[in-house]
Write a protein that binds this DNA or RNA. Structure first.
Length: 489
RNA sequence: GCCGCCCUAGCUCAGUUGGUUAGAGCGCCAGAUUGUGGCUCUGGAGGUCACCCGUUCGAUCCGGGUGGGCGGUACCA
C-alpha cells in the first residue's frame, strides 16, 4: 500500500527542441525536396552520415579535460569513448572524405540533409535541433568550385520560395581582412579572431560600437564589459573602411576593396579569388542582384580559410517590417578540415541551408511552402450495425488514392462533423439509414459549406440548407469525389 | 556563462495595501438542434497563483533560494 503521490513528470519539450506537426513537416519537406533537386541537377550525389560522431572527429575537443567542448551534445558509450551529436554536416563530410578518399571520384561532389544539434542558448529562429541541407565539393581549389556552390545557393533560395529580389547571397574572403591586418602589424591569431568577432557585430552595434570593440573595449547596456581587440586608431579605421567597401556592382566592390586593403600577398590572393568567382558567376548566369561581394560578412566558424558565403532573406511581414532570424544559410571554403585526419591539405568548399530557419522565416511572412496540410475524407459512423459498410467505403477511397478514414471515436454526429472540420478534411461521407435505403451516399463538401455559411445567419437555416451537401449513387461515390477533388486543385 | 525583467486556468492577461469562496476574454466540453462542422444563446469542466525554505495567527501577495521564460551580453568549433 504505497500512498505516496505517484511521480507526474511535466509534459514539456526540452528547451530549444520543438515538435513539428503536419504543416511544419510539409513546409520542411517541400524546401528539402526543392533544394535537393537543385543540388542533384548540379551533379551532386546524396550522402547520409550518422547523427553521432566520435567527438574528436568533430573538431573541437579539450584534451586536458574528459569533457568535450560545450556547444555540442556529448556522451560516452560503453567503451568510454566520447561521442557527440553532429553540429553541422560539414565536419562529418570531412571525416567521410578522409576515410574514403582513395576510392572516391575526385573532386567529390555530395549533398546531404538532416538534423544537426547545438547545445547553445535558443532564441527566435534559433533552435538546439534543426535541419540543414548542405552541398560541398571536396578536392577542388578552383574558385569556380566556389562560384558553383554560390550559384546553387542562389537557385536553391529561389526553389525554396525566395525568388529574385527576396534573398541575396553575400560573398567575402577571409584572406582580405587577414592581409589587411598583417599589413597593419597585427600578428597574433587571438587578435585576428577578436577583430573578426567585432566585425561580425557590425549589423547590431553599428560602426561606432565596432570601433570600440576593435580598440579598447565596450560597455554594453546590461553593464557588461567586453574587452576589445586592442587595435590602434589607424588599424581601427582601416578595418572600418574595409567593411564599408561594399558597392552596388561586384566589380565596383572589388575596386573599393582593393583600395581599402592596401597591398599584401594574402590580400591580393583573396582579391584574385573573388575576381575569378565573379567571372564564373557571370558565366553561370548569377546576376549581381542575387550574389554580391560584401566585405562585412564574417561567419562564425573558425574552419573557413578563404571565401565565405551567407544567404539572407529580404522579405517583410504585413506591417512592412523586415523579417530576420539571422542568415538562412551559409558556407565557405575550408581547405584544412580534411587535413585534420589525413595530414594532407585538401581543398573543399560548401554551403548549407538552414532549413528550419528558412521555414520559420517563410512562416513569419505568412507563406506556407508545400501548401496547406489537408486531412483525410472522414466517413461518419452512424451506427454500430453498419461499421462494415463504412469500412468498405473507406477502403474504396483508399484504393483510389484518396486519404480516408472511418470515425473511430464514441461521439455523436455533431462531434464527428466537428472532428472532420478540425482535421481540415475536404469531405465528410454520410451513410445513414436514409442513404442506405436509397442506395445512395451523401457527400458533404466542407469547404463549400463553410463558404456558404457566411451568408446564413441562423442555425436553423444552416441546417435546413445543408450547404455543400450532395447525394450520389453509392456506386458513383469514388468517381464523384475524384471529380470534386480534381476540380479543386 | 554574466546582467536585467518576468512566472496567476490550455492561451492572453486582470486581481489581492497579507484574511474565509482567485476572476475575465479566447479556447475546450455539453445542451438549445435525438442526422450535420460555422453564427447565436445557455450551462459546465479546468488553478497545490512555478517550486522549496523562511517571516507571520494567517502567504498567490513580503524575504531568500531553485527552476523555467524573455531581453541584453558573451561564446558559437
Amino acid at each position: 500500500m504505497d500512498d505516496a503521490k505517484p511521480f507526474r513528470p511535466e509534459a514539456r519539450n526540452p528547451r530549444g527542441f520543438g515538435d513539428r506537426r503536419a504543416r511544419d513537416l510539409a513546409a520542411e519537406r517541400s524546401i528539402l525536396a526543392s533544394v535537393s533537386e537543385v543540388y542533384e541537377r548540379y551533379g551532386f550525389e546524396a550522402l547520409d552520415t550518422p547523427a553521432f560522431e566520435y567527438a574528436d572527429a568533430l573538431g573541437k575537443f579539450l584534451p586536458d579535460s574528459d569533457r568535450p567542448n560545450e556547444g555540442v551534445f556529448a556522451l560516452t558509450d560503453d567503451d568510454d569513448q566520447w561521442m557527440a551529436l553532429r553540429y553541422d554536416l560539414t565536419a562529418p563530410l570531412a571525416r567521410f572524405a578522409a576515410q574514403n578518399w582513395e576510392t572516391l571520384p575526385k573532386p567529390f561532389r555530395r549533398y546531404a540533409y538532416g538534423p544537426v544539434w547545438r547545445n547553445e542558448k535558443p532564441g527566435p529562429g534559433r533552435f538546439r535541433e534543426f535541419i540543414q541541407c548542405d552541398a560541398d565539393t571536396v578536392g577542388s581549389a578552383r574558385p569556380e568550385a566556389d562560384a558553383e556552390i554560390i550559384a546553387m545557393a542562389v537557385e536553391g533560395l529561389e526553389a525554396a520560395g525566395l525568388p529574385r529580389g527576396q534573398a541575396v547571397v553575400k560573398i567575402n574572403n577571409r584572406k582580405l581582412l587577414n592581409g589587411l591586418l598583417s599589413t597593419a602589424g597585427v600578428g597574433s591569431e587571438g587578435q585576428k579572431l577578436a577583430v573578426l568577432r567585432a566585425v561580425d557585430k557590425l549589423d547590431r552595434l553599428g560602426p561606432d560600437g565596432v570601433r570600440l570593440l576593435l580598440g579598447e573595449g565596450r560597455l554594453d547596456d546590461s553593464g557588461d564589459y567586453t574587452k576589445g581587440a586592442g587595435l590602434g586608431a589607424k588599424g581601427i579605421e582601416a578595418v572600418i573602411a574595409f567593411t564599408a567597401a561594399g558597392r552596388g556592382g561586384r566589380s565596383e566592390t572589388l575596386d573599393a576593396i582593393a583600395a581599402a586593403i592596401g597591398g599584401s600577398a594574402e590580400g591580393d590572393e583573396g582579391l584574385a579569388e573573388l575576381q575569378a568567382i565573379g567571372v564564373a558567376l557571370g558565366g553561370l548566369g548569377v546576376g549581381e542582384d542575387r550574389a554580391v561581394f560584401d566585405p562585412s560578412v564574417v561567419r562564425g566558424l573558425e574552419y573557413y580559410t578563404g571565401p565565405v558565403f551567407e544567404a539572407e532573406a529580404l522579405i517583410e511581414d504585413e506591417t512592412g517590417k523586415r523579417i530576420s532570424f539571422g542568415s538562412v544559410g551559409g558556407g565557405g571554403r575550408y581547405d584544412d578540415l580534411v587535413a585534420r585526419f589525413t595530414g594532407e591539405r585538401t581543398p573543399a568548399t560548401g554551403f548549407s541551408f538552414g532549413v528550419s530557419r528558412l521555414a520559420a522565416t517563410l512562416r513569419a511572412a505568412n507563406r506556407t511552402p508545400g501548401g496547406e496540410a489537408r486531412g483525410p475524407v472522414v466517413v461518419i459512423a452512424f451506427s454500430q450495425d453498419h461499421m462494415a459498410e463504412y469500412f468498405a467505403v473507406a477502403s474504396e477511397l483508399r484504393a483510389a488514392g484518396i486519404p480516408a478514414e472511418v470515425y473511430l471515436g464514441q461521439s455523436g454526429m455533431k462531434a464527428q462533423m466537428k472532428y472532420a472540420d478540425r482535421r481540415r478534411s475536404p469531405f465528410a461521407i454520410m451513410l445513414g439509414e436514409d442513404e442506405l435505403a436509397a442506395g445512395e451516399v451523401s457527400i458533404k463538401d466542407l469547404d463549400e459549406g463553410l463558404a456558404a455559411s457566411k451568408s446564413l445567419a441562423s442555425n436553423e437555416l444552416w441546417k435546413e440548407t445543408r450547404p455543400g451537401q450532395y447525394a450520389v449513387k453509392r456506386a458513383e461515390l469514388v468517381a464523384a469525389l475524384k471529380q470534386r477533388l480534381g476540380s479543386r486543385a
